[in-house]
Each structure stands twice: as structure tokens, then as C-alpha cells.
């Protein structure tokens, strides 16, 4: 039991410490693909370090929401980490405290508070960013739900550990059209939810075109660091759900010892690297969509998810 708790905390630590690295890696690879040198892979760590040592400016007009939101945004992905199989393929201490729906809700609480805080500060861009993220999220959420429905149809459960076990139970289940469609829909959701191209341009510095970033403009110092870090962990957590639960449910630790766990860290790291390369390819080969085309993109994701559900009863 104690080992379970320790391992569970290990997962949180791994996600916390590695997530800036993968963000740095993603930026680096993308810059390389565009024939630029790009910042160092460790740049996100430097950024965080710098921000934590800066003073913070808080508007006197703002309320407690503005001060609390970064913490909530930072903690919510870490809570989700407790629920999902990051390193082990056997359920850990907190595994049955919540399912994938709960994970989705916890993540959206963080995003919700960030939006509130952005509006709380009272700047125009904050409002704009909030309303735009709300638009995207309100379209993403039904897709999330449909994906979970499809998954629960297929695996008879929404607990991530059980879903993961289902896909590897038979090859027919793994290769079923449902599985592929769910994965496709989920990748589109990740791109939308973490503000990547084609929905949003994370590298953009033009306030009018921002979606996700516009919410963070009023934050400074440690608060900004927490928001950024929260964004990194959120991307990593969603990628891990995709990789470990849906696409490649292999390579996790299956024994209850430290060596296996360390090996699992390496293997999951490799998988994440692969995924990061894929995202980089997608991002460099697509153009950012106009704001009013985003519903089209998410519409495709929605239809994909629903088709996965329709198709499910016919192929296991």
C-alpha cells in the first residue's frame, strides 16, 4: 500500500519535472523543421526559474480570484496525474478515485478559473482570450464526453487503467475502427485544448490573434510561472492519456519495484518524444485556422467521435 502511494507521488513528480522539457523539445523541433536554430531544450526551465525570482504586480482592482487562479490551474493537471497510468499498468493508490470524465472535469476547473482571473483583471485582451477559450472549450467538451462514451462502450469502463487493459486484451479490439477513430478525435481535442496549431498559435505574439495566451497577459512573476508550468503539465498529462491509455498501452511498469519504474520512465519518455515529433510535424504542416473556422475543425473531431460510437457495436 505504502509503495503504491509512493509510486503515485512519483508519477506526479515525473510529470512535474519532465513537462517543461517536452515543451522545450517541441519548440526546438519545430524551429528546426522551419530551418531555424531555436532556443535550447532547457529554455522553459530557465523561464520558470527567472519568473519565480521576479516580483509580482497585482492590480488593486482585482479580487482574490486573480491571486488564486494560478494555483488552481497549476494543481489541476497534477490531480489528474494521480488518476491515470503514467508509469505503471497496474492501478495505484488513487486509481479508482475518479475516471476519465473526472479527469476532464478537473482539467476544465483549472481552465475555468484562469478565464475568470483573466476577466477579473479587467483588460480587454483578457476578456477576449476568455471568451475565445470558452468558445473552443464549449465545443471541445461535448467531444470529450462522446469520446468517453465511445471508450466506455468499447471497454465497459471509463477508469483509465481498465480501458488501457481492454485495448491490449485482443488484437481485434486494438485494431478495431472504433479505436482508431477515438484516437483521431482525441488528438484533435489535444491540439484544441492545449492551444496548438491549427486552433491557436502558441508562438504568436500578436494579442488580437491570441486565444490561450491572451489570458495570461496580466500575470507576472511567480503567478505567471505557475500558469506556464500548469500549461506544460496539462499538455503532458493529455499526451500521456492519449499514449498510455489509447494509442500505445505498452511499455509501462508491470512489477512493483523501483527498477521497473525507472525503466518505465525511459520508455514513456521515448513515447512522448515520438508524439512530440508528430505534433511538431502537424504544427509545421498546417496553417492556423481563422477563428470562425475552428468550429469546422472541431466539428470533424465531433463527427469522428460519434462515428466511433456508432461503429462500435459492429466490430467488438
Amino acid at each position: 500500500m505504502a509503495v503504491h502511494i509512493v509510486f503515485n507521488l512519483c508519477q506526479v513528480l515525473v510529470v512535474l519535472l519532465l513537462s517543461p522539457f517536452f515543451r522545450g523539445l517541441l519548440t526546438r523541433i519545430e524551429e528546426r523543421m522551419q530551418a531555424k536554430r531555436g532556443p535550447s531544450v532547457w529554455q522553459p526551465y530557465y523561464d520558470l526559474w527567472k519568473l519565480f525570482h521576479k516580483d509580482e504586480v497585482v492590480s488593486t482592482q482585482s479580487t482574490w480570484i486573480f491571486r488564486f487562479a494560478p494555483y488552481i490551474y497549476f494543481v489541476s493537471p497534477l490531480l489528474v496525474t494521480l488518476l491515470i497510468p503514467v508509469l505503471t499498468d497496474y492501478p495505484l493508490f488513487m486509481a479508482f478515485m475518479g475516471d476519465m470524465v473526472a479527469a476532464g472535469f478537473i482539467l476544465s476547473i483549472g481552465a475555468f478559473f484562469l478565464s475568470l482571473a483573466a476577466m477579473d483583471a479587467g483588460t480587454v485582451y483578457g476578456f477576449m482570450g476568455s471568451s475565445r477559450t470558452r468558445m473552443v472549450s464549449s465545443l471541445v467538451e461535448p467531444i470529450f464526453i462522446i469520446v468517453f462514451f465511445s471508450v466506455s462502450f468499447a471497454a465497459n469502463s471509463t477508469i483509465p487503467y481498465i480501458v488501457q487493459a481492454h485495448w491490449v486484451s485482443t488484437p481485434a479490439a486494438f485494431y478495431s475502427p472504433t479505436h482508431l477513430l477515438i484516437v483521431a478525435a482525441f488528438i484533435m481535442i489535444i491540439l484544441a485544448e492545449t492551444g496548438r496549431i491549427p486552433v491557436d498559435n502558441p508562438a504568436g505574439h500578436f494579442e488580437l490573434a491570441m486565444i490561450d495566451e491572451a489570458r495570461t497577459l496580466e500575470f507576472s512573476g511567480p503567478s505567471l510561472a505557475l500558469v506556464k508550468w500548469g500549461g506544460y503539465t496539462k499538455f503532458m498529462v493529455l499526451s500521456i492519456v492519449l499514449l498510455n491509455v489509447l494509442v500505445t498501452p505498452w511499455g509501462l511498469a508491470s512489477h512493483l519495484n523501483g527498477i521497473d519504474l525507472c525503466a518505465a520512465i525511459v520508455r514513456v519518455g521515448l513515447k512522448l518524444t515520438g508524439f512530440v515529433v508528430l505534433v511538431a510535424i502537424v504544427e509545421t504542416s498546417l496553417a492556423k485556422l481563422r477563428l470562425f473556422r475552428i468550429p469546422d475543425f472541431l466539428g470533424v473531431a465531433f463527427v469522428t467521435a460519434v462515428i466511433a460510437m456508432i461503429v462500435q457495436p459492429f466490430h467488438f
Partner: peptide, 18 residues
Amino acid sequence: LLVNINSVIGALFLLSAV
């Protein structure tokens, strides 16, 4: 395995039409 791959292709085929 081929039957399974065919299923995956089915999903992609449908997706391509959409």
C-alpha cells in the same frame, strides 16, 4: 492481422470521406 488492418483502413477510409 490483415483482417485487423483492414478494419483500421475502414476507419481511415470513412474519415477521409468526412
